[in-house]
Amino acid sequence: MTEQRRDDRATDASVDAAWRRAAGEQPPAEVDAAILAAARAAVRRDAQERRPAPPPRRWASWQPLAAAAGVIGLSFLLVQMLPRDHLARPPANQDASRAPAAESAPAITPPAAPPEAAVTDEAAIMSGEREATAGAAPRTALEAAAKQSVAARPESPAAWASRIAALHDAGDLAAAAAELRAFRAAYPDADDYLPEAVRGWAASVGHDGTP
């Protein structure tokens, strides 16, 4: 009965114990070494793959800002190096629009005052330059020139010279002389724009307001 019950059991501790006492084989050392070497190599490979990319250099984050600052500085320098003439001259389209008007208008017509909105930074620059270049011109002439320059702006030197010549030809010598003084105050080389026919008269017009 006891033997029958023992046979019915799925396992037997005495057999297990005998088995373990008898079975002690281990894998050969070279097999152990190969397996452990493969395991270590796999870990090293993983470590290399997981290694993070080197951190960016400290100055690298400033590169975009430095580049932007460089571009801005270079642009500023280029603007500063541009010739000032083109700033002093009115835009070509305005010249073109004014020239026919000056030709068609009567010679005695004073220059039309531009609307207030037309007074721009460019005009301020022009008036500043004119003051600076006026040199030894009398204060009254300078003030008149300044007023005239603002009023006459943006008349070109050629148109201005033509108008003076027209006043001279019409016999209004006083008005022509006043215009000439204002013209000279605005343009140091004003006489060069005058037609040959009036240069003799212009030479008789003094810079101090006396004919």
Partner: peptide
């Protein structure tokens, strides 16, 4: 996670039974 010594301990624990 990269601990090679953990594998060595695990292998030492099981190498005999798997081999047998």
């Amino acid at each position: 996670r990269g601990d090679a010594t953990a594998f060595e301990r695990l292998y030492a624990r099981h190498k005999g039974p798997t081999y047998r």
